[in-house]
């Protein structure tokens, strides 16, 4: 008999709220969707009677397109919303906006919002299934899942692998979700960046801290390099991007000076010449474009598994 697969939760609010078994179920389902994406017709009818609203209260290119494509590949009906062109500008509250959208019979919500905890808040007040596509500096669970899936695809079982996250850890939701996801999968995780961009007591999350990028890269098997999020920085945490690039930027020369070949990842958008030089971003050690490709399959898996809970 076919094995039943479902997640332990109705929503995907953060990696914090899902189990290791959930992550494995998502990866296994993503493998099947990856095969679907390589067919001549890259579409399945699974979600044909499900309506999904993509609510983006914050800018996004990759995540929004990736979700939209995943939804369309699953045959869902999709409506898009972005805050810049909506009634939010006229003073409507988040809950009112969402309840108005839900009364148009929407089954699932994919939401990005600048306020940490906004997806959780919404899940307490509405019935629809919610997928967090980034809530401020808090979590970005689908990015962490697709990162871990891409690592597993490239280097095999994640358990025991050493992964360092380099950059602006303080303002990064990708960093937090990645740390939790990789920890759940049994990886050894470290962070590296200027002291001002490493949160206090981050060791309590079970990570090592490096302040020298070369030392961190020598230690790791995989480096996930993040962008400096100037838009979230209220004060100056680093003297200049030029100085950051000099001390924490990764270039070909640095990679070649290491004793082993490591894998380079980046969730995008890349600031070429700041955190990564162009020759590193485009090298065969980089799996940046694989991450984007896997993003669609992983998001299809999440939508498929959560939509099973949506009542008819």
């Amino acid at each position: 008999m076919a094995i039943v697969s479902s997640l332990s939760t109705k929503h995907l609010l953060g990696i914090k709220y899902i189990t290791t078994e959930d992550i494995e179920t998502i990866f296994q389902t993503a493998n099947n969707f990856k095969e679907v994406l390589n067919r001549p017709v890259k579409k399945v009818p699974s979600l044909r009677d499900v309506t999904i609203a993509n609510l983006f209260f914050e800018n996004s290119t990759r995540t929004k397109m990736s979700f939209e494509l995943a939804e369309k590949r699953l045959s869902a009906d999709v409506i898009n919303f972005s805050a810049s062109s909506s009634s939010v500008k006229k003073g409507e509250t988040l809950l009112d906006t969402v309840n108005n959208i839900l009364s148009m019979k929407v089954d699932m919500i994919v939401m990005r919002h600048p306020a940490p905890g906004s997806a959780y808040y919404l899940s307490e007040h509405i019935d629809a299934s919610i997928i967090n596509a980034g809530d401020g500096t808090h979590e970005h669970p689908t990015q962490a899942l697709l990162d871990a899936y891409s690592i597993q695809e490239k280097v095999g079982n994640i358990k025991g692998k050493k992964i360092v996250i380099v950059g602006d850890i303080k303002h990064s939701r990708v960093a937090l979700s990645n740390i939790m996801c990789l920890n759940k999968l049994g990886a050894k995780v470290a962070v590296c960046g200027p002291p001002t961009l490493i949160p206090k007591n981050i060791e309590t999350l079970g990570v090592k801290v490096f302040y020298q990028v070369k030392e961190a890269l020598e230690w790791c098997d995989v480096a996930n390099v993040l962008r400096i999020q100037l838009e979230r920085q209220d004060i100056k945490y680093i003297p200049s991007l030029r100085e950051y690039a000099r001390y924490f930027g990764i270039n070909k020369q640095l990679l070649e000076s290491l004793s082993k070949k490591i894998v380079i990842m980046h969730p995008g958008p890349i600031n070429r010449g700041v955190e990564l030089s162009s020759d590193v971003a485009d090298s065969d050690q980089s799996i940046i474009l694989e991450q984007v490709e896997n993003g669609v399959a992983v998001r299809m898996a999440i939508l498929y598994l959560l939509a099973g809970n949506v009542s008819n």
Binding site: V4, T29, N32, S46, D49, L74
Partner: peptide
Amino acid sequence: IDITFYRDDYRRRESPLMASNTEMDFN
């Protein structure tokens, strides 16, 4: 060929079924 994603009873069951591998290297 695996038909899990094409089933017409998806969401009429308690939980979705786990898909098996599709192995089609030709059209």
